[in-house]
Computed example of a mutant assay.
Amino acid sequence: MRWTPVLLTALVVCALLGGAAGCGADDAHERGTAISASPVGTLLDETDEEGRLYREVDGKGAPEVAIEIQPDPAGGWDVRLTVRAFRFSPAGTPTVPVAGRGIAHLYVDGRTVARLRTAEHHLAGHLVPRGTHHVTARLYADDGTVWAVHGKPVESTADITASESAPAPAAPRAAPAEARRAVTARGRPPEMSGHGTETRTDGGGSPDPGGKAS
């Protein structure tokens, strides 16, 4: 074999790029390792109220959430989520869907009021005016898609009722407005009864001792 200047130059370039891999034989494979992660679940045509697509995953080992709400004596409501097969992503997490990870969106009567990266949240009283309201916690992947099972979003809903009583006319000094605020939460304590099912809270109950965010 005659070693020409052109051939020698080509061999030097291949060596600098990492041998045969740099000459194209395995170049595609090398580039592919950075994006070889398989997609998580299947994107559906269904969307939430803000147009975010549902990401369907198998029911076995899928995320679950339950919600419990208690009136705060100081005003507002204390919200607590119990999750399974799910962990909250800290701020700054890449916007890439990872199985069993993400954030929760909190809704009052279908309106987004908070995006949660922890299992506990204080819901301000002005967000829940007098009357009965539906408070929903729904789980989302880090890319903003909705975790879903059997075409239904992974979520849980509690019904709460807020009312204000008038001050006693004979009282020598008017009580603070928050002290006169009577609230009730009706329903039953949260249970992990499946995906997309409604879960309610009992205003006189106590938190589930075994429910902790995972």
Rank of each mutant, 00 (worst) to 15 (best):
V108M: 06
P129M: 10
L53A: 15
P71C: 06
I67V: 14
R87K: 13
V135K: 04
E68W: 04
A124P: 06
I35M: 07
T136C: 07
H134R: 15
F88S: 00
H29F: 14
G75F: 04
A28M: 11
T82E: 13
L53T: 07
P71F: 10
K60N: 03
Q70E: 11
V96T: 14
S38K: 14
S89P: 02
L127D: 02
G24K: 01
A124F: 01
P90S: 06
H133I: 10
G76T: 13
R130H: 09
P71N: 07
D48R: 01
K60M: 08
V79I: 12
G102W: 03
I69K: 07
E64P: 03
A74S: 13
S89W: 00
D27M: 14
V113N: 11
T33S: 13
H29W: 15
T136L: 11
D48H: 08
A37N: 12
V83A: 07
V83P: 00
T95A: 15
T95I: 02
P73W: 03
E68R: 09
D109T: 03
G59V: 09
P97Y: 01
P73K: 12
V65Q: 02
L43I: 14
G110H: 11
G24V: 09
T47V: 15
E50A: 15
G59K: 13
Q70V: 10
G75E: 10
S38I: 10
A28D: 14
V98P: 08
D27C: 11
V96F: 05
W77P: 00
G59L: 08
A34D: 13
A124V: 12
E30C: 09
L81S: 05
V40H: 07
V40Y: 09
R117V: 06
G75C: 07
H126P: 04
V40W: 02
V83L: 06
L116I: 09
P71D: 08
H105Y: 11
H122N: 03
D72E: 09
R111Y: 05
G131H: 10
A28E: 14
P39C: 01
V128F: 10
A119S: 14
L106N: 04
S38D: 09
D72L: 08
R130Q: 13
L81A: 07
A119T: 00
L81Y: 07
Y54L: 14
L53H: 15
G59W: 02
R52H: 13
V128I: 15
V135Q: 03
Y107V: 08
I69F: 06
E120G: 04
L44W: 05
V96N: 03
